[in-house]
């Protein structure tokens, strides 16, 4: 495949080129230490070299808050608000976040396909960028390379004073059309290494999880865990939601709204009458980890964690999903029979 080169000094020009005919979402600085995906407006404000954003591009397909129904209480009638197709360019997406989008695609198309998600997802084009793994990333352990172009229409690999550009799809060619890119035939730079690893592949991890239901790590983790649900909120593959009713002050109209929810929150399993089906924090931690490495993974064969490191990086109590999983692996390997 032909390769091109984009000098760092021309990145803003490239963003301006994309903005001329597209809605573009890209990483921006947020405060002094954080990054967030936002609608690009000022080409110079887009940042392509970043460790991770606070939340992934998930928020554009499954917004943190979303109106499901508008209702009129005087008529007792409801209508579904239109969902505009996304049709946007997502610039500067890391491979693990794109892998997470593919997992969400699976969740929202299997069983009952969901119009809201799929309409927003429609027409999305992705321009991936490579990244240098920091102390939280472990995507390599779940099979997602920092240079993985799967799902990308263009891919930018960091190199010296700029970016090596791959254009794997026709849509990528359309995005690049009219913007002068020099051909580039030098080899790609050596791959960056991860410092965080999960030590067995998913095929064996399912068995490790199976053997670890009563492992002390759940209670020990629960002792530190605040049950705040931040790990759920920042996870690019978490998609559980709550639904609430908002009524205007005159009580004549309102909205049924959904918002992100989290299985780490106590009320998540509460039913009428006050029964909680996963009341203990330890059980909720196990559920969270099993959601990422067992339940859906047993069906799809793939880990539902993409190794972005957000849950660990954001945890007030410094709970590390990598440490939890590696401890389960270590302890179950002591019992050879589990893994053979």
């Amino acid at each position: 495949m032909a390769q091109y080169f984009l000098e760092q000094a021309r990145v803003a020009d490239f963003v301006a080129h994309l903005l001329a005919s597209n809605t573009v979402y890209a990483p921006h600085r947020k405060g002094s230490r954080s990054y967030a995906f936002a609608k690009a407006d000022d080409p110079a404000a887009v940042v392509l070299d970043y460790p991770r954003t606070l939340s992934s591009v998930k928020k554009f397909f499954l917004p943190p808050r979303e109106v499901l129904l508008n209702f009129d209480l005087t008529l007792d009638a409801a209508s579904v608000p239109p969902v505009e197709p996304g049709n946007a360019v997502f610039l500067g997406v890391h491979s693990y976040d794109l892998a997470a989008v593919r997992r969400l695609d699976f969740n929202f198309t299997t069983g009952n396909p969901e119009r809201n998600y799929l309409a927003r997802r429609d027409g999305a084009r992705f321009i991936g960028v490579s990244y240098v793994p920091d102390k939280f990333h472990f995507a390599g352990s779940v099979g997602i390379d920092p240079y993985d172009m799967t799902g990308c229409d263009m891919f930018l690999t960091k190199h010296a004073d700029g970016w090596i550009v791959d254009i794997p799809t026709g849509e990528g060619s359309e995005l690049a059309a009219g913007f002068k890119l020099e051909a580039h035939d030098e080899p790609k730079p050596p791959r960056a290494h991860f410092t965080q690893h999960v030590f067995v592949p998913q095929a064996r991890l399912g068995k490790v999880m199976e053997a670890s239901y009563d492992h002390p790590v759940w209670n020990e983790t629960a002792d530190a865990c605040l049950g705040c649900g931040t790990c759920n909120l920042v996870c690019p593959t978490c998609y559980c939601f709550n639904v609430q009713e908002n009524v205007d002050i005159a009580c004549t109209s309102g909205q049924r709204e959904r918002s992100w929810d989290g299985c780490m929150l106590r009320g998540f399993t509460e039913v009428a009458g006050g029964e909680f089906f996963r009341e203990k924090v330890a059980a909720r931690q196990r559920h969270r980890v099993y959601r990422k490495f067992k339940y859906i993974s047993d069906v799809t064969g793939q880990p539902w964690c993409v190794g972005c490191g957000r849950c660990t990086a954001s945890c007030t109590a410094k709970i590390s999903i990598v440490e939890i999983v590696n401890r389960l692996i270590r302890d179950s390997e002591r019992d050879e029979s589990i893994l053979t």
């Binding site: 969740n107 929202f108 069983g111 009952n112 969901e114 998609y239 559980c240 939601f241 709550n242 639904v243 959904r258 929810d261 299985c263 998540f268 399993t269 089906f277 559920h287 099993y290 067992k294 339940y295 859906i296 047993d298 069906v299």
Partner: peptide, 9 residues
């Protein structure tokens, strides 16, 4: 979709 009724898998 919403995840609230999940029992294990």
């Amino acid at each position: 979709k919403c995840g609230h009724c999940q029992i294990n898998n």
